[in-house]
Every structure is written in structure tokens, then in C-alpha cells.
Design a protein around this nucleic acid. Structure first.
Lengths: 355, 355
DNA sequence: TTGTAGGCGTTATCAG
DNA sequence: CTGATAACGCCTACAA
């Protein structure tokens, strides 16, 4: 009973009310709402006034029921509290909002099961498209079905090889190769690559870039120097400790990302290694902390907001009917040489910075 | 034509299809979907199987049209790229998702005009409620109308005095008083309060706490010592420089928040002030950088994720019909004494930390 | 316990 | 250029 009244209060003014007040049909009012339709200026004005008078508000739900378009997309990321993804979300929201879309935000916590449930819910809500940073354990088949049903997906930051859709992110391989060459130029020969989990695109690609540069320098890539681990600060420290226990330990470590690098950096300092002169620790992402740590961290600056913007733009294109084959969009990034690699000791190396 | 086909492909399976396959009516299928309804186990099973067979997906749009409930809320914040709000968003999303709600994320950029347009859009999309960190220049009347129409709003982190709805945030006044007392205990007598803009709740309340503690100590609050300015790092530096040009400059400055404090800290160092011994700079929020700056920043730790959770919980209660009078919910926070106030020089002061 | 029927607010079709 | 009318998919009295 009460609910009835409440509902009525909320959804009171409909097209039909406007039509009655304006003395025209609902069809006319609907037409008058669209920009370029054949409606006389006089009628249009009448309708405009009636809408104002009644306090009419467009009801997208009803429209969606008719048209199948919700003007809504889903943004699924693995951890919104991570500043990297927060910046990414900001970029996405800006672009989508400007084009009249609203963004559903969901957090998968990097859990494939949870992600599946969230996708299902997003689809119940009728999203027109999906922006996805795929979680560990993503169900590929499910995503392919969604694509098959005509809902576009754009992957952000990470990508799954078995998914034939657009993907936007940094050019990990090139950047990792760049970073490795930088360390080689500094004179390092035993270089390790630490962390990241199996199959994760960022690890695969960064490792490939590392291997490429090593091979260019006619150095072997040893498996003991490329251990995997979940990308956490603690694991960064742990892996470094393991490394240093090897018979022939590395003199430089490239970490999966800054968080791990920061962990490794701490461990290195604790172990009394001369980070920044004889020993190098570097990362990826350029999170705020990277610049503030002592020694400051050499890393790759990735502009997450830019990635978000690019991904949203791509999705909008798909929504407008772009049917070109899926592509990987590489967003610019750059090496940032700071103190943790000892690059400042040799001026020659600094010129290696891609500015 | 093509759009037609596409739409058909997407929204193919409806309740009626399931009903046909199961050999029952749509009403029965609908009933079978709700948990506690009077439907025989046998029928229920038949329906379940038919749903599976047809690949049925619930259509919330259609349901909303009938029931007026969208299971959707809007989260409006002033800057998602700010880690503080990102953490807050994470808290909100977690709680709402668990209760079956989806979150629309919108970024107002602290612009009242933009915020108004966003709210309008959110309402077009039929959100059941609003979580709002009000932007500068918020249109109060508009918000009051929305409340009047029965859409609950919960303010987060900041609040507007003219809005009779719940608000969730830290207990700014108490915390600022605490901070001020801490500085007084360290022997400071001329203490300034820098920044924040006119009328912004956080400034008003923090300033009140500051004044309260000053008065307890029988010290005057001088207007020259409480200048306003938009809360940016640069303004933090600027205001400090102005302060130090006074005839009788302060020996301690409480900044509106950490970002300003960090700016002030830099300026203080540049001016050769002995920050951490004779001169104190403190802030609010405990952003990541606070701990990493040199000297590390004494501040108030505010758990943004917790605020997000509390706000979402409150909104859910309203959505379920809670009609108790609007309240301000104070989320715990605590003083974090680090190096920038010189507290470490006097052990007595450290016990002042609310742990 | 299950079925029938009407309507939520919009848009598309087709006639006028 | 405008109007009547039939969907879109679901829910809910009310009837059986």
C-alpha cells in the first residue's frame, strides 16, 4: 500500500502526462524529444513548455525496454583501491560520461568466480558493453559467449590470449626490453626478473622483452633467475632473499611491478646490498611511492588515466558499430631513471631515458 | 533492420519463453523466481530446468518498470583519482554489491553545475538512492527536492548544513582539537590553521576543534592565523610563506589536509625552518605520501574505505524503510604522531596518540 | 497451487 | 507533421 504511494510519487510524470498537458499525443512528445525529427517548431515549443510545467523526467528504463539500449556500461577492475586502477577508472568515467553513458563500477578482487557473478549481474542490468581487466581464473568461454551475443568487451591493462576482443594497455614487451638494455648498459650481466603469476599477460610480455634484450646481448636467460610469485610487496622481499642465496646471485633485479620492487628494495637494504651503486632494483608502473622511496625507484611510468580514456573510446567506437578486427592498442609509456639502478652514476645511461 | 536482428539476438529469452518450454504460465515462472513463494517443488524444478535449457537471463529493466526498484545506486565523488576517494569507493562497492545493488560511479570534479547534470542523469537511470560527496557550489534546493520525492541521499566525507539527510565522516572537530592539544603540549603557543574553502564542512569543523582547544588553553584565535585557500599543495606552500611574513609568525601550522601540509612542509624546508624540532607542520587524512615524506608527516589517519562501508550500510537501511531522523555518523579516526611536529623529541607527547 | 489479464513508460509502425 | 496502437519483459491482483 505504502510502497504503491511512494512509487507513484517517484515516477509520477510520464510522457502521457506531458502529452495531455500539451494537448498532443505521446508519440508527438516522444518525437519532440529527439533532436532531428520532423516536428513543427510550434508543437515542439508547446511540448517543451508542458514538460517544464509537469517537471517531466525521461525514463531510460522504459526506453531500454523498447530500444534495447541502456546507455550504460560495466567497468570491472581487480582492485579499485589501487591508485593505478583508480586513475584508470577516472579516465573511463570522463570519456563515457561525455558521450552520455553511465558507468557501473565493480570490483572483482582478482577472483574469477566473483567476476563471473558480476558479469551476470551487469548483463541483467542490460549494459551495452564491458570494460574488463580480467581477473585470475577468468572463464574464457563465458566471455566468448557474451561477445558472440553482440555485447562488446574491451580489455584493459591486462589481456587474455583466448579472447578475440580489443585490448588496451602499455607495450610491455618493448618497455621491458628497454629497461633490460638500460641495466645492461650500466654493466650488469646477471639480471633477474622477479614475480608475477603464470600466464598473466603482463608477466609474459615483460619477461619476453627481458629475454629479447638478454639475447641481443648474447646472455642466457636462466630459469632460476625468473621465479614467479603473486605480485605483492612481501613476495618482492621474499624472492630477492631467495635470489641472493643462489650460488651466483644477480646484480640487478627487474620486478614485476613497483609494489614488488619496493618490497625487494627494502629487503636489499636490510641485507646490506649497495642499492643504487653495485646493486639495482627496478619496477613497473611508477606509483606515487616509487618517487618517494629511498633510493627512489627506477621504473616505467604508465599513465593509467590515459589507458582508461583509450579503452573507453574504443568501446564507444564498437558501440557505434565499428566492426574492424580486434586490436591491441598500445598506450605510450616511458622509462623513468631514478636512483635505484645506479643510473645516475653514469651520465651515458641517462640519455637512454625515452622522454 | 540490422539493429532489430541484433536486439533480438541479445534479448531473446524472456519469461514467456521459459513458460512455454516448462509448460506453465509466465506468472508461475515469475513466482518461481522469488524465494519464498507458494509454488510446488515439482513446478519449481520444471521451471528451473526450462530456464537452464533456454539460457534465460533476468531482465531488471522490465522489472523496474513494474516495481519501481532498480537495485542501483549512484556514487558521486569529487575526484575518483584521489586515493582517498578510491578507497572510499571500494568500501561502498563491496557493501552494495553484497546486498545485490550495483553502483553507478560518477565524478563531479568538485563542480556544482556538473554535479547537477549528473544527478539528473542518475535519476533518469532510476537509481534507488544516492551517495554523495557534495561538490563546491552544490544546488541545495535540488537535493532537497530529490529527498522530498523519496530518494534517499547519504552524504559522505563532507556535508552540507542545509540538507536534512544522513552524513558519514570523521569527527573533524574532536580530531582537530586533539591535534591542537598535542601541539600545545609540545609547547607551541602560536598555532595557525591553514586552508580549506569557505563553508566547506571539513574546514568549519576542524577550525572549530582548533578554536576549542586554543580557548581551553586560554589562547586567542587570531584571524590572521586562519587563512582560507583551495586545498592544493601549491596553496599549502603559499600560505606558509605568507604566515612567516607576519610580524609574529606561528611556530606550528595545522593544515587543512595532508596535500596542503606537504606543500607547506616543502616551503618550510626551503625557508630553512627547523621542521620537526622548533617548527611543526601537521595535516589530516594520512595519505600514503604522509609517511614517506621527510620529515614524515604527523597527521590524522582516516580510513576512507571504512567511511564508504558505513555510508553504503546507512543507505541500504534507508532503502529498506528506516525512517529514523537523519544523523551524522562519525567514523573512528586517530592521531598519528610522526616527525613533522617534533613529537618524537618528547616522550610525554607520544602517549597522546589515540591508538 | 496456478492461470488470466492489465499495465509500467517508451518507441516504432502505419495511417491519416 | 501528427495520432492511434502495439509491442518490449516483467509483476501482481484476482480468478479459477
Amino acid at each position: 500500500m505504502k510502497a504503491q504511494i511512494e512509487r507513484r510519487a517517484k515516477n509520477s510524470v510520464a510522457l502521457s502526462d506531458v502529452a495531455r498537458v500539451a494537448g498532443v499525443s505521446t508519440a508527438t512528445v516522444s518525437l519532440a524529444l529527439q533532436e532531428g525529427s520532423r516536428i513543427s517548431a510550434a508543437t515542439r515549443e508547446k511540448v517543451r513548455r508542458a514538460m517544464e510545467q509537469t517537471g517531466y523526467r525521461y525514463n531510460r528504463f522504459a526506453a531500454k525496454l523498447r530500444t534495447g539500449q541502456s546507455k550504460t556500461i560495466g567497468l570491472m577492475i581487480t582492485d579499485i583501491a589501487n591508485p593505478y586502477f583508480a586513475a584508470l577508472a577516472a579516465g573511463v568515467e570522463t570519456v563515457l560520461y561525455r558521450s552520455g553513458y553511465m558507468t557501473f563500477l565493480v570490483n572483482s578482487n582478482d577472483d574469477g568466480i566473483r567476476q563471473s557473478m558480476q558479469i551476470e549481474r551487469l548483463l541483467e542490468h542490460g549494459v551495452d558493453g564491458l570494460l574488463l581487466s580480467p581477473a585470475d581464473g577468468t572463464n574464457l568461454e563465458e566471455l566468448n559467449q557474451i561477445l558472440g551475443a553482440g555485447t562488446p568487451i574491451v580489455q584493459i591493462s591486462r589481456w587474455l590470449s583466448g579472447l578475440s576482443c580489443d585490448a588496451v594497455g602499455p607495450d610491455n614487451q618493448t618497455l621491458a626490453a628497454e629497461m633490460t638494455r638500460h641495466l645492461l648498459n650500466l654493466g650488469h650481466r646477471r639480471i633477474a626478473f622477479l614475480g608475477g603469476t603464470e600466464g598473466r599477460s603482463a608477466r609474459v610480455e615483460r619477461l619476453a622483452g627481458y629475454a629479447q634484450a638478454m639475447e641481443e646481448a648474447e646472455l642466457q636467460v636462466e630459469e632460476t633467475l625468473t621465479p614467479m610469485a603473486a605480485p605483492t610487496r612481501a613476495n618482492g622481499a621474499l624472492l630477492l632473499i631467495e635470489m641472493m642465496a643462489l650460488e651466483s646471485p644477480p646484480t640487478a633485479v627487474i620486478c614485476y611491478h613497483d609494489l614488488m620492487a619496493l618490497g625487494a628494495l627494502q629487503a636489499a637494504k636490510d641485507m646490506g646490498l649497495a642499492v643504487g651503486s653495485k646493486f639495482a632494483v627496478v619496477g613497473f608502473d611508477d606509483i606515487t611511492e616509487a618517487e618517494l622511496s629511498r633510493p627512489s625507484l627506477t621504473t616505467v611510468h604508465i599513465d593509467a588515466e590515459n589507458i582508461g580514456r583509450a579503452a573507453a573510446t574504443r568501446l564507444l567506437a564498437r558501440l557505434e558499430g565499428d566492426e574492424s578486427p580486434p586490436s591491441r592498442i598500445m598506450v605510450p609509456a616511458r622509462l623513468v631513471v631514478r636512483d635505484s639502478c645506479g643510473g645516475y652514476l653514469r651520465n651515458a645511461a641517462v640519455s637512454h631515458d625515452i622522454s
